[in-house]
């Protein structure tokens, strides 16, 4: 036991085998950057065994479903998220799960699991998402997440810094030291091409960074809008569903939730 609720949950989820990788806000803490989130987030393995195991752990803690998708492969594979809450020692613990985190390709996600299985965890105390992928997850519609990316990038390798940095000054310094690497990476991040034309003024690069951020925020908003539309019926019926769920232990509540979701929540979402 570490004494921290989210670390202890991570260990419980991973008893016997790797099923859950700590992500988002609490991963930022593990990388020693900032305390900013009260909730726990995990990327979980997309197998029935893993999801059922995690449900049993949550059940043992007296957790309840919040509005969200069932913790079931059929919906999780469609990019949905499942959300739970319970009380422990004065905390309101919230647990959020995805199997298909946004902005990570299937190949990259498979590599993440492979690396974690082989113990390539950057020496962290529990399975935790790495800096680069964490930065990708942070490319949301929230301004404050880009400040986190700014400092996450400073802990990365040179190549990853060039692809993730939010600092014009840092990029200019790196370009002076690694001009050939900048050329190689420019096809992945077009604003790097501006580093050739900077001179002593960074205003154009600063503008390009701001435009890049705006574009990322807008893309995430569109993604959320698609899921919001797709979950309209589900959200409207949630108060009635929740009344029924409250009377049941989590495992039984889950069965009821799945039955309701089959009628009201599409497993796949178009235009995402």
């Amino acid at each position: 036991m570490t004494g921290n609720i989210y670390l202890d949950l991570t260990n419980e989820f991973n008893e016997g085998q790797l099923r859950a990788i700590l992500s988002s806000g609490q991963a930022v803490v593990m990388h020693r950057l900032a305390l900013s989130s009260k909730d726990g987030d995990w990327i979980v393995r997309e197998t029935s065994e893993s999801l059922d195991f995690i449900l049993r752990v949550l059940d043992a803690h007296g957790a309840r479903y919040r509005l969200g998708a069932p913790l079931d492969v059929r919906w999780m594979s469609g990019g949905w998220s499942a959300h739970f809450e319970f009380a422990l020692d004065g905390y309101r613990a919230r647990c959020d799960f995805v199997t298909r985190p946004p902005r990570l390709s299937r190949e990259d996600l498979a590599s993440l699991w492979d690396e974690q299985e082989h113990g390539e965890n950057g020496g962290l105390e529990v399975p935790t998402i790495d800096l680069r992928r964490l930065a990708d997850l942070k490319k949301t519609d929230r301004e404050r997440d880009y400040a986190v990316i700014g400092d996450l990038a400073r802990k990365m390798s040179v190549e990853d810094q060039l692809l993730q940095s939010r600092s014009a000054r840092d990029l200019i310094d790196l370009a002076k030291q690694y001009p050939q690497l900048v050329q190689k990476l420019a096809f992945q991040r077009p604003l790097l091409l501006l580093l050739d034309q900077i001179g002593e003024s960074r205003i154009h690069l600063q503008r390009a960074l701001a435009e890049e951020q705006f574009d990322l925020m807008e893309r995430n908003e569109k993604r959320l809008a698609a899921y919001s539309r797709a979950s309209n019926d589900w959200s409207s019926n949630w108060p009635q569903i929740q009344k029924q769920l409250r009377q049941l232990p989590l495992i039984q509540a889950h069965e009821l939730l799945v039955a309701s979701a089959r009628r009201l929540l599409p497993m796949e979402v178009e235009s995402v």
């Binding site: 987030d41 969200g68 959320l224």
Partner: peptide, 12 residues
Amino acid sequence: EDEDDYSHGVFL
């Protein structure tokens, strides 16, 4: 204050 909010995922 944040009883109904979501910090991550696709629900708001």
